[in-house]
């Protein structure tokens, strides 16, 4: 079997060109492995080889980011590698930034898997950790011996196109993407052990750090209700009988647009809920208790509101991903703009 081809990026120090005095060294390419590349090659056990090493001064890269990246990408392109790896940079700040930046540039330009390694406090982690695989290493080159097996293993998985496990399994920094994997102990045992540590004021690691939610500035109020066009949107899954769009009972992949023109009341047998997360008895009996068409129609007749928008929008907010909900809502909002809607009543179950 042919070996996977790897190109390795390192700085002037690990390239044995020199220390800080040589940090202005421009990118150069050598064939085969250099410095840490020799140790890395040993991890491949014959399955991959470093065909070329690119050495660049940390100062040079950080001061000439765009031109350095462009030059290095071309050097990498010539080799047509299967994987690109940089570093590891440990806690060297400029080296870490260079490793992260060049990995991202190569990934974007050549569409090949990339990875690097560095210490958790290296600014490169903050800057590039969400976009590329960065293996967690110790803070100095003394951690080379423990870093290379992790980098080598992840590199081979990427080369083979295998499924990449969760961050804690593979040893890379979390990219904010939740990935399932199997722990050695069951959840209840992990919970008891975590509690014992928390009680003893010992460090523990939560399996799910709480998110922070963004905010949107409130829109101004409607000035005149009697001319306003009010639209209803619901995540309660109200649909015409038989669920014509087959909106899923959970993890909805779509939403529906339904006409209520001339409809005074959502009556049993004509409307129902597709939502699987709550007892549907009440909503199936009278869908107005989720989408209040009857009341708003009355208020339209009484002149309290200008009109009830002739369409309402419905999806199922049961286990449905936030990203999907955002996309549905953005699409609905476009339609609401076209329909000259003034304000929205959103109902949730």
């Amino acid at each position: 079997m042919e070996k996977f081809k790897v190109v390795h990026y390192i700085n002037q120090f690990f390239g044995q060109i020199g220390g800080e005095e040589m940090a202005t060294h421009p990118p150069e390419k050598r064939s085969g492995p250099v410095g840490p590349g020799l140790g890395l090659t040993a991890q491949f056990k014959g399955e991959a080889e470093i065909v070329a090493t690119i050495i660049c001064g940390d100062g040079y890269y950080n001061e000439n980011m765009d031109s350095a990246a462009a030059a290095i990408v071309e050097m990498v392109r010539e080799e047509q590698p299967d994987v690109f790896v940089a570093g590891p940079a440990f806690n060297a700040g400029r080296y870490g930034v260079a490793c992260g930046a060049i990995c991202k540039a190569v990934k974007d330009a050549l569409q090949i898997p990339v990875l690097t390694g560095m210490y958790e406090e290296n600014p490169g982690v903050d800057m590039y950790g969400k976009e590329i695989y960065i293996v967690s290493t110790r803070d100095s080159a003394a951690g080379m011996r423990s870093a290379l097996p992790v980098i080598g293993k992840l590199l081979l998985k990427l080369a083979r196109g295998e499924r990449i496990g969760a961050s804690v399994e593979e040893g890379y920094f979390s990219q904010g993407i939740r990935v399932n994997f199997f722990e050695e102990k069951r959840g209840s045992t992990r919970a008891v052990e975590m509690l014992v540590k928390k009680l003893a004021d010992e460090p523990f690691v939560t399996e799910y750090p709480m998110p922070s939610f963004d905010r949107v500035d409130p829109m101004p109020a409607i000035k005149d209700l009697s001319t306003a066009n009010i639209a209803i949107v619901t995540s309660g899954g109200i649909v015409p009988h038989g669920n014509p769009d087959r909106i899923e009972s959970s993890s909805a992949s779509k939403y529906g647009e339904y006409s209520i023109e001339g409809v005074a009341d959502l009556v049993v047998g004509e409307w129902e809920t597709a939502h699987g997360g709550y007892d549907p008895t009440a909503a199936n009996h009278d869908a107005d208790c989720v989408v209040p068409v009857d009341v708003l129609r009355d208020m339209e007749q009484e002149g309290i509101i200008g009109k009830l928008n002739p369409y309402f929008y419905s999806t199922v907010g049961n286990g449905t991903a936030v990203a999907s909900s955002k996309q549905f809502a953005a699409e609905m909002a476009q339609k609401l703009i076209e329909q000259n809607v003034s304000a929205v009543i959103l109902t949730s179950t």
């Binding site: 959840g187 928390k198 936030v322 990203a323």
Partner: peptide, 21 residues
């Protein structure tokens, strides 16, 4: 979400600092 990129829970609090999933 299927891509693992959405918020995992409908509610959150910084006091919930020890979570098993």
């Amino acid at each position: 979400g299927r891509d693992g990129k959405s918020q995992s829970l409908a509610d959150a609090s910084p006091k919930a600092n020890a979570v098993v999933t």
